[in-house]
């Protein structure tokens, strides 16, 4: 079956993703690599640094709409949140809260906090979360894009949770504790992280989409991410008691309905989906099959 070539988001570098998402030539990088704002800490560990500390930030336009954007480089130290890395993202979002572009796009590709800078990274992660709430308070939405090779774990996963909306591919993984961490701490019988199909069933983009946390499921194709992100650009809705009550009710109901499930297939079956086929469905097929 002849396949049309895709421009893979999963494989692209952070710079390639930014270039592919924004309108050509519109991106202006802030603190570009020539500024050499590298980690002041990695040297202590004899670890190499990167000129952008693993995150590209800046401004540009998305289908003509002015946006701020940050993109984590999953291949540099697992896209980890170090001091400079986190501060660049915090600065960008606060800048957006002040200048009010139509959205902030967050390309999350991160194993979480950088261990060598654990305290700085964890505090920095929560500074990002506070900044997101600040941007949303003034109406600037933060849209997360997930589908990088590193996944989205730890502090980064909670940052994703704080976004207005997420776009993800089936290749995306989103969870607080990574499968390897759960296996290391709780034992292989709790989570066999080498069972790749199990890892993706549990943490992958499809499962997150079926629960609604991911608003749009796309194929691993940068233009598909671009279209989906653009369609989600709308002013952030203010936090309200009734909407949070509704949100909480849904989460409580999820526990009541699926709280005893130990495998995604059980969940999909309860949702009335063909559980054995979900993994092989395309984004469009699953979107059509998703229960209302």
């Amino acid at each position: 079956m002849k396949q049309t070539p895709r421009i893979s988001f999963y494989e692209a570098s952070a710079r390639q993703r930014v270039a592919g998402l924004l309108d050509p030539g519109s991106f202006r990088e802030i603190l570009p690599p020539t500024e050499k704002r590298t980690s002041p800490h990695l040297g202590l560990f004899d670890a190499p640094v990167s000129f952008d500390d693993g995150v590209v930030i800046g401004e540009g336009t998305l289908e003509g709409k002015p946006v701020a954007i940050f993109a984590q480089e999953g291949k540099f130290r697992g896209g980890s949140l170090g001091e400079v890395h986190a501060a660049k993202i915090t600065g960008l979002i606060l800048r957006a809260a002040a200048r009010k572009p139509q959205a902030v796009l967050g390309l999350l590709d991160s194993g979480g906090v950088r261990l060598e800078e654990a305290n700085a990274g964890e505090i920095g992660s929560t500074e990002i979360m506070r900044a997101i709430f600040e941007a949303r308070r003034v109406g600037v939405p933060v849209i997360g894009l997930l589908g990088g090779s590193c996944g989205c774990f730890g502090g980064a996963s909670i940052i994703a949770g704080c976004c207005d909306a997420l776009v993800a591919s089936e290749e995306a993984r989103l969870s607080v504790s990574g499968p390897e961490v759960i296996e290391t701490v709780m034992g292989v019988e709790a989570f066999d992280s080498r069972d790749r199909a199990l890892v993706w069933r549990t943490t992958g983009g499809k499962n997150r989409f079926l629960f609604g946390k991911v608003a749009t499921l796309v194929d691993d194709h940068i233009p598909a991410f671009r279209t989906a992100a653009s369609a989600l650009v709308r002013p952030s809705t203010p936090l309200r008691l009734d909407s949070l009550r509704t949100e909480r009710d849904a989460l409580v109901r999820r526990i009541a309905t699926f709280g005893t499930c130990t495998d995604a297939k059980q969940i999909w079956e309860k949702m009335g989906l063909p559980a054995d086929r979900v993994s092989d469905m395309t984004a469009a097929e699953l979107t059509a099959a998703k229960p209302a």
């Binding site: 979360m129 709430f133 996963s157 909670i158 994703a160 949770g161 704080c162 989103l174 969870s175 607080v176 504790s177 961490v181 759960i182 701490v185 709780m186 709790a190 989570f191 549990t202 943490t203 499962n207 997150r208 629960f211 946390k213 936090l239 309200r240 008691l241 949070l244 949100e247 909480r248 989460l251 999820r254 526990i255 699926f258 709280g259 499930c261 130990t262 495998d263 995604a264 969940i267």
Partner: peptide, 25 residues
């Protein structure tokens, strides 16, 4: 955070973010 497959299965990051939103409210 609670480390378990079934917690992550139901999207733990979403629950934690919800708690943070409640604090923000």
């Amino acid at each position: 955070q609670r480390m378990a497959l079934d917690e992550e299965l139901l999207v733990l990051p979403e629950y934690i973010a919800h708690l943070l939103r409640a604090q923000q409210l």
